[in-house]
Amino acid sequence: MRAVFACAGCGAVLTAPVSQIALPVHAHHTYGHELLPALMEPGAYAVDPEPSGPPWRPWSEIEVDEAEARGVFAPVYALSFGAPGAIVVAPGDTRGTVLIPERCGGSCYGVDGRDGPNLACARCGRPVATRIDDCSYWQAVWLAPHAVRRLPADGSARRTVDWETPAEEREGTPPVEPSGAWSPRWEAAVGAALAHVLVASAGAPVTVPDGLVADTFGRALDALLPPGPPAKKAALVGPCLPAPDPAPGIALVPQCPRTGKAWQDHPYARPF
């Protein structure tokens, strides 16, 4: 179902019609010292289930059990204790908003949201969203969940690409950019997949087949897991791929970037 988001204060429409997709795995990753493209495709929105934005608490003030409850097991500079459920859209899909000049702090080329919501409803002046477009960040507008309302929009939802869609109609992201640099989207996806593999390993060594999988995961797995047998075998499994024989102990399966659903045909599947 297509939707628009409106100001919770006065009801003014703040976005173009958008359809929900999965939150990109690289949504909160920063990359390099350059201007990055928009996080979201036009006509799409995603919801972040985790807390985001201010207030922030430095690592020194956070108890270990608090951090672990949030899935954070290594020190970070600060952790957000803001409201969960922020809605992200492409900057070009916003409507009827104006910048709040005193909240437009940034580090280099643009604004990074450090001062809290920096976009206000043009009709009533209520702070409703945070625009981020500084270098190293994916360009995005994050709608504050308490400041907006989701309303149905006319028209059918955008077509969803799933595992029944022919392979030639699916869009992919090459692992290497035209400049020769490693794709930041792939960096984030590989990091998330590596975390899944480490959990599935249960601390045992993991072997991977030669080729792309070994080039991507081999060195990290050797460094993070102990050597020696018995080792679990990990391999790519999914549509358009021949079934490995014998079946691996850990199957790396693709994850649909639109729906967020993993292709699963293995009891030990881990999304990639």
Rank of each mutant, 00 (worst) to 15 (best):
A122Y: 00
R123G: 02
C124G: 10
G125I: 03
T130R: 11
R131E: 08
I132V: 15
D134K: 14
W138C: 03
W138F: 10
Q139L: 04
A140H: 14
P145F: 10
A147Q: 11
V148M: 06
R150T: 02
P152N: 09
P152E: 11
A157W: 01
R159I: 00
R159E: 14
T160H: 06
T160W: 02
D162S: 09
E164T: 07
T165D: 03
P166N: 06
A167K: 09
E168N: 00
E168H: 04
G172D: 08
G172P: 00
T173H: 10
T173D: 09
T173K: 09
P175V: 00
E177N: 06
G180F: 07
G180R: 11
W182S: 08
P184R: 14
P184M: 05
R185G: 04
G191T: 12
G191F: 07
A195L: 13
L198W: 06
A200R: 13
A202Q: 13
G203A: 06
A204H: 12
A204N: 11
V208R: 09
D210E: 15
L212F: 10
V213E: 14
V213Y: 09
A214E: 15
T216A: 06
D222T: 13
A223N: 08
P227C: 07
P229T: 05
P230M: 04
K232W: 03
K232E: 02
A234I: 02
A235M: 03
L236H: 02
G238C: 05
G238V: 05
P239S: 04
P239Y: 08
A243W: 12
D245E: 14
D245S: 10
D245R: 11
